[in-house]
Design a protein around this nucleic acid. Structure first.
Lengths: 142, 142
DNA sequence: TGGGCCACCATGGGCGTCAATGGGAACCAG
DNA sequence: CTGGTTCCCATTGACGCCCATGGTGGCCCA
């Protein structure tokens, strides 16, 4: 499998580490990604992660917009100013920093959610809530 | 036969596994599907399964939107974050995870229902109920 | 047409492997 | 010297893979 799919919830240990699900690690390994780029989602209280190549994509995206628009401005602020590089330890765990905790509300457990070309870290309850709400909206539409 | 038809109810064993009906497995085998994409139905309390090509279809749907819009984000949350890849064991069984149980209410038995290009997992009583209701409604109309 | 044989499918369970988790100890930086 | 990391090793519980069994339906033959 070559994309990030499904979701899983893992526990944060006493040292503040959490295991990235092995399915996600497999995707990263296949893409030969050793360092992760992390940023804050534009819509939800979640932190997104992917290989550094997403930076290129974001920059193209911003470049294609009106450089003076509020949207492009905000996006650049988040991408460039709010992005962080992270790496996994030998066991495939990452350190849950305050950067992540503050924005997501994560305390002791993390829900990893696949998003196709990247994955996200959520506070478990917030993820449940958002997902069921999104489902309801879709149901209402169809 | 190249589509999923009819329904059958199988028992979940002590390890939480359930056999996929052989007629369905035959359809999968013919389509050379080894990994199943599963998602939660948008209307009923049932989990749907099919080959990975439905995921492509969903993704095209998302791709036709502004990739940074809240709408596309929400849809990806359901499709990617709410979808799971599952594979069958050597005997053609699948593991009934909490992902399935929580959404369907399944406990010890599963009703498999063919839906043409995919099939669904139902809690047996819920399936009965839904079917008889659908039948009544049709009768009332004609 | 009835009986029996056989194949296949649903089900049960053993066992090895690997992922998730926990914790010790070395290492670095302030 | 001290707090925070990083690297390594241990544990355990879940899952994948494999083989066994039994029941049922279909098929063949008398």
């Amino acid at each position: 499998m070559n994309r990030f799919l499904s979701n899983a919830t893992n526990r944060i240990d006493a040292k503040g580490r959490v295991s990235v699900p092995s399915t996600f690690r497999a995707v990263l390994a296949q893409a030969a990604v050793s360092e992760l780029y992390a940023w804050q989602d534009f819509v939800f209280p979640a932190v997104s992660m992917a290989g550094p190549e997403v930076l290129d994509r974001f920059e193209r995206m911003i470049g294609s917009q009106d450089p003076f628009s509020a949207e492009a401005n905000k996006m650049s602020l988040l991408i460039h100013g709010g992005g962080v590089f992270m790496k996994l330890d030998g066991e495939g765990r990452l350190l849950v920093t305050d950067f992540i905790r503050d924005f997501t509300g994560i305390t002791d457990r993390v829900t990893f959610a696949g998003r196709g070309d990247h994955f996200q870290l959520w506070e478990p309850a917030a993820f449940e809530e958002m997902q069921s709400r999104a489902r309801k909206e879709r149901t209402a539409i169809s």
